[in-house]
Amino acid sequence: MPFLYLRAIALIMIMFGCGFLGVFYSEKFHKRVLHLVDFQNALNTFKFNVDFLESPLYEALKNIATESSVVKKIFENISDKLRNFSNVRIDEIFKEIIHKFEEELFIKDEDVSILVEFSDKLGQGNKEHEINNINLALMKLKLSEEMAREEEKINQKLYRGIGFLVGIFIVILLV
C-alpha cells in the first residue's frame, strides 16, 4: 500500500514537474517583452539626459534608472567602463557588457544587434545626431517589442499546454 502512494506521488511530481518546465520556458517570452520595454525606458531617460541636461556620455548612461535591475546594471557597467577606460570603442563595451549579462537577459540576437548598432553611432556627432540615433533605436525597439508581444501571445499558451500534456503523456506511459 505505501508503495502505491509513493508511486502516485512520483507520477504527480512528474506531471507537475513537466508543467512547471512548460511555464518556466513560456516565461522567457514575457521577460523578453519586459526587457525590451525597459530598454526603451532607459533610452528615453538617456534622451532626456542628452537633450535637456546635456550631460556627458558616461554620466547620461549612469543616470538611467529603470524598473528592471538587469537593464540598469548593464548601463551602469557601460558607464563605469567608459569612465575608467577612455580609449576603448563604445560599441565594443556595449557588446562586452551585454555578453556579460547574457544569462539574465531574455532578448534575442536581433534586439542585441539594435543596441550594438545604436552604440556604434553613439558619441560621434553633435546633440542632434545623438537624438536622431536614439529615436531610431527607440523606433526599432518598439517594432521589436510589437513582434515580441505577438510571439508571446502565441508561444506562452503553447509551451504551458505542451508542458502539462507531455507530463500526462509520460504518466500514462509509466502507469
Binding site: N155, L165, I168, F169, I172, L173
Partner: peptide, 22 residues
C-alpha cells in the same frame, strides 16, 4: 485505455501546435 488516453493527448498537442503555426 492507455492507447485511448495517448490518442487524446496527441490530438490536443496536435491542435495546439497547428494553431500556433507549427
Amino acid at each position: 485505455f492507455k492507447v485511448a488516453a495517448i490518442g487524446i493527448i496527441v490530438a490536443v498537442l496536435n491542435q495546439l501546435l497547428v494553431r500556433s503555426g507549427r
